[in-house]
Simulated assay, not measured.
Amino acid sequence: MIRPALISLALLVACAPQPQDEVSQFAPDYLGVEAVSLDSDLVQIDLSMRGARGPEDVDRYGECAVAGYTLSQGYGFARHLRTNIDEKGGVWTADAVYTISPTLPRGFNTIDAEVMVADCAENGIPTV
Rank of each mutant, 00 (worst) to 15 (best):
3 R>H: 06
3 R>G: 04
3 R>S: 05
6 L>A: 10
7 I>K: 13
7 I>P: 00
7 I>D: 11
8 S>R: 14
11 L>P: 00
14 A>C: 07
14 A>R: 06
15 C>N: 00
17 P>F: 07
19 P>W: 04
19 P>Q: 06
19 P>M: 08
21 D>M: 05
21 D>K: 07
22 E>F: 04
23 V>P: 02
23 V>D: 11
24 S>Y: 06
24 S>T: 15
24 S>E: 15
25 Q>F: 02
28 P>Q: 10
29 D>I: 07
29 D>L: 11
31 L>V: 03
33 V>L: 06
34 E>M: 15
36 V>N: 08
38 L>Y: 01
40 S>F: 10
40 S>Y: 06
40 S>N: 14
40 S>P: 00
43 V>Y: 00
43 V>K: 03
46 D>G: 03
47 L>Y: 06
47 L>H: 01
47 L>G: 11
48 S>W: 05
49 M>L: 14
49 M>T: 07
53 R>M: 11
54 G>M: 13
55 P>S: 15
55 P>A: 15
56 E>G: 14
57 D>T: 09
58 V>K: 00
58 V>M: 11
59 D>I: 01
60 R>V: 01
62 G>W: 05
65 A>L: 01
65 A>S: 13
65 A>Y: 00
65 A>K: 01
68 G>W: 03
69 Y>R: 08
73 Q>P: 02
75 Y>E: 11
75 Y>I: 08
76 G>E: 12
77 F>P: 01
78 A>R: 03
80 H>R: 11
80 H>G: 04
80 H>I: 01
81 L>D: 08
82 R>G: 03
83 T>N: 12
84 N>A: 12
84 N>C: 03
84 N>S: 09
85 I>L: 15
85 I>P: 01
86 D>W: 04
89 G>C: 12
89 G>P: 05
89 G>S: 14
89 G>Q: 09
89 G>R: 07
89 G>V: 14
90 G>Q: 12
93 T>K: 06
93 T>M: 06
96 A>K: 05
99 T>M: 12
99 T>S: 13
100 I>H: 02
100 I>Q: 01
102 P>D: 08
102 P>N: 07
103 T>S: 13
103 T>W: 08
104 L>K: 14
104 L>V: 04
104 L>C: 14
106 R>M: 05
107 G>H: 13
108 F>W: 11
109 N>R: 15
110 T>N: 09
110 T>C: 09
110 T>P: 06
112 D>V: 02
115 V>M: 09
116 M>K: 10
116 M>L: 06
117 V>M: 04
119 D>C: 02
123 N>I: 01
123 N>H: 12
124 G>Q: 13
124 G>D: 14
125 I>D: 05
128 V>A: 11
